[in-house]
Design a protein around this nucleic acid. Structure first.
Length: 464
RNA sequence: GUCCCCAUCGUCUAGUCCGGUCCAGGACACCGGCCUUUCACGCCGGCGACGCCGGUUCAAAUCCGGCUGGGGACGCCA
């Protein structure tokens, strides 16, 4: 089999969104699985809406997800000469002609057709005029009047289109800029793309594109159309469904491996498996296992996956990822080792880095803030004695490890004839300010002797 | 309106190509229980679906037709 070449061609009119990211991911995986090439191409022929900031945002998103490309990014605006050459070829072979119909006329005919319940189509007014190029004239493709165009879709199977349903699409605009349907075909031909994997919304463009390939005598690539991703209400994913930009997920504290895992399972499956490492994805990915029906993006599953990947990581590896969230909260700076220790106690309790950073507060601040209800309930005068004894015992404890701490707590509770549970919550409140936290001995181990004693004494002082 | 696509638990899906092994399996969420110094994690259990109607067949989630529902496209946007 020849080298597989796929591409991801975003238009730089916004951020890299969830749908685009999945398309990119599937193209990337397909190329990697087959040991082929993955090309990044920026489709910026919409001069008005394209921005450089969007290009940057898309590249950032790709990089964060780890979708590296082998060629590009190419920019369509830098390839006008190529398109012009192919346009001339189509004219000289009788596959394209110049049209002088004004956009206004076309538009009003379109509306009229819709109003009458007909499919709006360009009638071919200028087909036989034999016009040459001129200002404001567009170049149109001469679509065959009869016949059937077949799209052999790798995902959906064969789809038939009657050529009579199609009209003479514009290849080059009045200002000389090529349109999407023309530019993609030329790009995919000249970049030797072998597999076009893209969103479902392009199915209806495909017969037109196939006709252009045929007019150019170019070899057809394979096509695979992915079903769309919808929001909870089954409408196309948009802002009102929450975060749509990939980078927003980074800011919400998600790990790229979780998003990738979530995205790949939307439409693709491998038996009953849910969790896939990058290497496993590359090994197992195939278009045959891609489903045909649209899927709904499910935040709960993403959270579960993210929790999984947070648990799986080494605490040290989480430190640099968490730091931005920590400093955003204005916590004092702490050494890596200390942070890693704290993270280790929070991994099983955090679904996102945001949750983790929030839960980190008591590890970071110099003085804990007591939850009022908790302090009223657990830091009463009845605990004075126990805290007194505990403080004294801890003061003389050499190593603050689990065994030593447990021994101390057992000794004190034994002496006072109380259960561990009785003293645990008050100590927890004294150390963290709240009733919910990681295990007591874990916390003490991370906080260290000095801080623990300071916090216990401060709590003791409040017990009047 | 016209053309195109899709249809299994609330959600993601396995099974559908090659009918019987499926009174439909897994995962998320939800509900119980266990573990336990709190909360989580983990473990165990529960709830829950083949859109509808016909046809073919000894037998249909699986094949065929229709209907309904959803989505997409119909731009000098991509």
């Amino acid at each position: 089999m020849e080298t597989v070449i796929t591409r991801f061609p975003p238009s730089p009119t916004g951020f890299l969104h969830i749908g685009g990211a999945r398309t990119a991911l599937f193209n990337w995986l397909f190329a990697r699985h087959h040991g082929g090439k993955f090309i990044l191409r920026i489709e910026d022929t919409d001069l008005v809406r394209s921005t450089e900031a969007s290009v940057k945002a898309i590249l950032d998103g790709m990089e964060w997800l780890g979708l590296n490309w082998d060629e590009g990014p190419y920019f369509q605006t830098q390839r006008f000469d190529i398109y012009r050459e192919y346009a001339e070829r189509l004219v000289s072979t009788g596959h394209a002609y110049w049209c002088e119909c004004s956009p206004e006329v076309i538009e009003s005919r379109r509306k009229a057709a819709m109003a009458e319940g007909r499919k709006p189509k360009y009638e071919g007014t200028c087909r036989a005029k034999g016009l040459g190029p001129g200002s404001n004239r567009v170049l149109r493709f001469r679509t065959p009047d009869t016949g059937t165009t077949v799209l052999k879709d790798l995902i959906k199977g064969p789809i038939l289109f009657e050529n009579s349903e199609l009209d003479d699409l514009v290849l080059v605009r009045g200002d000389g800029v090529p349109t999407y349907n023309f530019a993609v075909v030329i790009d995919d031909i000249t970049m030797n793309v072998t597999h076009v994997i893209r969103g479902d919304d392009h199915v209806n463009n495909t017969p037109r594109q196939i006709l252009i390939y045929m007019a150019l005598n170019a070899r057809l690539p394979e096509f695979g159309h992915l079903p769309m991703i919808h929001g909870e209400d089954r409408s196309p994913l948009s802002k009102r469904h929450g975060a749509t930009s990939v980078m927003e997920y980074k800011e919400l504290g998600f790990l790229p491996e979780a998003l990738v895992n979530c995205l790949v399972r939307l439409g693709w499956s491998h038996g009953d498996e849910e969790i896939f490492s990058r290497a496993e994805l590359i090994e197992k990915f195939s278009l045959e296992a891609v489903g045909k029906s649209p899927g709904i993006f499910n935040m709960e599953k993403l959270l579960w996956l993210n929790a999984h990947y947070i648990k799986e990581k080494q605490p040290e590896d989480l430190v640099p990822l968490l730091r931005p969230f920590l400093s955003a909260r204005g916590y004092p700076d702490r050494p890596d080792g200390y942070l890693a220790g704290a993270i280790g106690t929070l991994q099983a309790r955090s679904r996102t880095l945001v949750e983790m950073a929030d839960a980190m507060r008591f590890y970071m601040v110099d003085e804990v803030v007591y939850d009022e209800a908790a302090s009223a309930k657990f830091l009463g005068a009845d605990m004075r004695n126990a805290f007194d004894r505990l403080t004294a015992e801890l003061e003389s404890l050499e190593s603050f490890n689990e065994e030593g701490l447990e021994a101390v707590f057992k000794k004190v509770t034994g002496e006072l004839g109380m259960k561990l549970g009785k003293i645990a919550q008050p100590v927890r409140v004294a150390l963290t300010g709240a009733t919910v936290s990681p295990g007591l001995f874990e916390i003490i181990g991370v906080l260290g002797k000095e801080t623990v004693l300071t916090r216990l004494r401060r709590a003791l002082a409040r017990m009047e």
